[in-house]
Nucleic acid binder design. Structure first.
Lengths: 351, 351
DNA sequence: CTGTTAGCGCGTTCAC
DNA sequence: GTGAACGCGCTAACAG
């Protein structure tokens, strides 16, 4: 009778109620708190709901409960495998817990980061903010308004998971020192990056301990291109070894070095950070491990904790790292003192 | 006075209304139909909304309008730069149109793809499904229920954008033929992939035209590792050139070849597909261009069209491709016929 | 131009 | 165990 009117409108809870001869409250309960209803009623409601083709409206449910089963993740560079692996892990875990994930990419822009944070608001229950470039104040403001978990940013009173690369980086410098390097250079990453500050300090401190010369050059964004473009500055320095902010930068440096006719590791040793390129560079990159997937999983479960009990505040997970030695480090060529120690090698280098 | 109660509740439209001394409807208008209000009022409302820290609640808005401004994108491998670049482009465009994006990663599993499609339903207005591994029937069923745009899958009656790599692949084979190759091998990608079928056919057809020997081997997932593991099979064949399903696979092949002591391109030519690794392989990879970013942008605007006028159905965008020659292709070494044409090269190869 | 009113679809007090 | 009534935050229709 009403089926002429009710064309193709998606059925609501009250359509089911009417058809089942119960109140809409009962239908709601049948789907969310079945234990409050008699088994017979539940079965009856579910059956006819299915017949009608009723499916609960997430949006309406969210508006009334405040929970919609979505979380957000914001990263600074989708093209970087570090973030990609982390997102992937978050996604898989979120899936297991029946959460959907919103993705945000800031392309290193703090403004965009701020905008996305706001934009997600109201649509997600919580946000995982990875390697933010925002100031502490801004982050704090957002953290007050919604559940927020940080990755690679250390800030009191905001739950966070940190990949502590200082351990691995220190190992790396020790490794270089033992090989005989006396002067190293650190290629800096994004200024707002906690990881960059941590790595820089670790390299500097370790270099000092070992009595090595230390300098830095700047690759403001962590990309292949930025790494490549910084090579002339590296070559202008007395350094025989370079530690790069991350693997992408290191890979760019490798390419730039090759173009300049510098053989790695014979004439220059290179160390990356993150270990996300595996053996896919040439030569295979010596780098500092990190575990983006584990960081992602940890961040997600931390976020779920926060969602459950709102008092989780000053939690701080720290993941350690270590050096992975592949083929881009060796003892330095003694380029100034002894020009041609090995004719074969030299010939090779010239070619 | 009320600030003791209003602790940290996120401000609503009526908070702004009260503070601004206007009705909540005006606040709503200030954010959605500013043209209906006097400029002064709009400015005033926006200013104090900003002071209070008000940000519109998308969920509530969605409940009343029926549109929530979310779209979903589902890809098969988040770690593949092809998808990453595409997502990035979609994200940027979505942002410009004030849409948020849900991300789904299937890890090549059709089941997961199906599940995500369902899960997103009701939370998004439309979905961009990239390089699906699902059957045509399943896809069709989903397309009936919600706005769906396909990337790299050709199916009547579903809007789609296709990257036509057959052009570039044909060029690639011609290039190899001109260099003197007589036998080539194609490394296949995922079975459910439209791009794989298209590329395979194109290589085969072009090889036939040129009178070249043609064979295939299988790397079931497009990854570095899969490419590497397929190298023994390549070496067991008479082929002097290989065309890989994508750049990742090609990069793995490069690595495997290097490990086997085969010099590229002298002893083996390698061509990739997608051109997403730039010059970051060693040697820099000859490959077939594609424009994942443009595909992403196109897909998004197509989806927006579908959302506006529900009659958009059989639209089919096709993006062309071409060969990008770098350093992994050259004329074949004449290994069987003329053992040592060039002593210098041979010495090099043996080392 | 602006305020008032009435829902969007659902979950949740209360009563019964 | 079940129903009636209210409200989540916002937009749309109608007044004025």
């Amino acid at each position: 009778m009403t089926n002429l009117i009710t064309r193709k409108r998606t059925p609501t809870i009250s359509d089911v109620a009417a058809a089942a001869g119960v109140s809409s409250a009962s239908v709601s309960r049948a789907f969310t708190r079945a234990d409050l209803l008699s088994a017979a009623t539940v079965e009856h409601i579910l059956r006819i709901a299915n017949e009608i083709g009723y499916v609960p409206n997430h949006v309406a449910r969210a508006l009334s409960t405040g929970r919609h089963g979505n979380i957000g993740i914001i990263v600074s560079d989708l093209a970087n495998p570090f973030f990609t692996l982390l997102i992937r892990a978050v996604q898989i875990e979120a899936d297991r817990h029946d959460f959907c994930v919103f993705l945000g990419n800031t392309d290193e822009s703090p403004r965009q980061e701020d905008k996305l944070l706001n934009r997600f608001s109201g649509q997600v229950e919580g946000i995982i903010l990875v390697a933010p470039r925002l100031t502490n104040e801004k982050i704090h403001a957002h953290a007050e308004k919604r559940a927020l978990v940080l990755v690679n940013r250390d800030m009191p009173n905001v739950p966070r998971v940190l990949i502590d690369s200082s351990l691995g980086v220190t190992e790396a410098v020790a490794h270089l020192a033992e090989l005989g390097h006396r002067s190293i250079i650190y290629v800096r990453g994004p200024p707002g990056s906690w990881a960059n500050q941590q790595r820089r300090s670790a390299v500097q401190a370790a270099a000092k301990t070992r009595g090595m010369e230390f300098a830095t050059v700047c690759a403001p964004v962590p990309t292949f291109e930025a790494g490549r473009s910084v090579v002339p500055q590296i070559l202008a320095s007395p350094a025989t070894a370079v530690v790069a902010f991350d693997d992408l930068t290191a890979q760019g440096i490798l390419a730039g070095l090759a173009e300049a006719g510098i053989s790695v590791p014979r004439q220059m040793s290179v160390v990356g950070c993150d270990d996300v390129l595996g053996a896919s560079t040439y030569p295979p990159l010596t780098t500092v491990s990190s575990r983006p997937d584990e960081a992602g999983r940890t961040a997600l479960s931390l976020l779920l904790d926060v969602l459950r009990r709102r008092d989780v505040k000053d939690v701080r997970y720290s993941l350690d790292t270590h050096l992975v030695i592949r083929s881009t480090t060796s003892r330095p060529a003694e380029r100034d003192r002894c020009p041609n120690p090995d004719p074969a090698l030299t010939a090779h280098a010239v070619s």
